[in-house]
């Protein structure tokens, strides 16, 4: 693809970053307040590590494929 076009991986990175922030943020809020959602295995704090994973992947792709990067 031409370099001047924004890569699809950038769009994916942006979306994963936004979702990562939202889900990780909720997970941290759960930890801080102790208001856990009524789901199975809530003690594993899935929103924290799944959100963090999405955030890391999202940031990697958003930065690696950011517009204008050679």
């Amino acid at each position: 693809m031409e370099s001047k076009e924004i890569s699809i991986w950038f769009f994916i990175g942006v979306l994963l970053t936004i979702y990562g922030v939202m889900i990780l943020g909720y997970g941290i809020w759960e930890l801080v307040t102790g208001n856990f959602a009524n789901v199975i295995l809530k003690e594993l704090h899935a929103p924290v590590w799944w959100g963090a994973l999405m955030l890391i992947l999202g940031l990697f792709y958003a930065l690696r494929f950011r517009p204008g990067k050679a």
Partner: peptide, 12 residues
């Protein structure tokens, strides 16, 4: 999904 996913994750 409903069994394991808390808010945000369920939306995902």
């Amino acid at each position: 999904l409903v069994r394991y996913c808390s808010p945000g994750l369920l939306g995902l």
